[in-house]
Design a protein around this nucleic acid. Structure first.
Length: 242
DNA sequence: AAGGACTTCAACCGCGAGTGT
DNA sequence: AACACTCGCGGTTGAAGTCCT
């Protein structure tokens, strides 16, 4: 049924060359983002649109802040993960210059382990006792490699809902924000947590970022909406980092 | 110095949502 | 209403780099 996103035999795969990067940058500079399906041909790239989009978003965008995560960014990711679970794009939306892929990788390679070292279960942000039931036998040592890390969900994602619509789908529905075991699970009656949801590292003002800021505001309102619906016990990490 | 184990991160894949026809 | 198509997301993979013995 679904057409493949690209004609696989005619496309390059793997690492991008400098020339490819330059072509993509040049094209987007003159024509702007969007229409990823037709972009590769228009830009003279032997890549599928998806690949171009990913390369641009995760690597070439001029507003990207590359390099190590600052401590406040780490704290914010941990807080937001406690709140939102593995919604990397939402989390990244609160970190100017960071991408969902970057945040996801950083979580899996650094922050998971950091939390585990602190005796906090990175999946549900609770202290000790619930610390990782091993997801697979080989992971029982507790060492979190990035790959096994991303495979594991101590609190398995419930019904998979890609859109954040279920954020809006309120009330009588436990899986509002339950994937990856945010603090909303585990059946305890929770008191209302006074979460500070203005969880954003201040944005560097830039005219180029107009669209991004607008997008960010959209996500912010989603998040605020979410916060209204949330009843959540203070998770240890939220307490630790607040 | 060598090579195996482990870690990192760019890139790919498959799926679901949204939208147009 | 049903289908086709594009876009965006989260999970996963694998090459390259680093560490350890």
């Amino acid at each position: 049924m679904r057409k493949p996103c690209c004609d696989k035999q005619d496309t390059n795969k793997g690492a991008w060359s400098k020339q490819e990067d330059q072509r993509l940058i040049d094209y987007i500079r003159t024509h702007g983002e969007g229409c990823w399906r037709t972009l590769p041909q228009a830009a003279g790239l032997l890549r599928c649109g998806k690949s171009c989009r990913l390369r641009w978003i995760n690597y070439l965008r001029p507003d990207l802040k590359r390099g190590n995560f600052a401590e406040d960014e780490e704290d914010l990711i941990i807080k937001l993960h406690a709140l939102l679970g593995n919604r990397w794009s939402l989390i990244a939306g609160r970190l100017p210059g960071r991408t969902d892929n970057e945040v996801k990788n950083y979580w899996n390679s650094h922050l998971r382990r950091k939390l585990m070292n602190m005796g906090i279960d990175p999946n549900n942000h609770r202290l000790g006792h619930s610390l990782s039931r091993p997801q697979n036998p080989s992971d029982a040592s507790g060492s979190a490699t990035s790959t096994s890390g991303s495979k594991s969900h101590a609190c398995p994602p419930p019904v998979k809902s890609r859109s954040d619509n279920n954020i809006d789908n309120n009330n009588n529905n436990n899986d509002q924000v339950s994937d990856a075991g945010s603090c909303l699970e585990d059946g305890h009656p929770h008191g209302l947590l006074d979460l500070n949801l203005d969880l954003t590292i201040s944005t560097i003002p830039s005219p180029k970022l107009g669209i991004i800021v607008e997008e960010d505001n959209k996500k912010r309102s989603e998040l605020s909406k979410l916060s209204r619906d949330i009843e959540c016990a203070p998770s240890p990490t939220l307490l630790l980092f607040s």
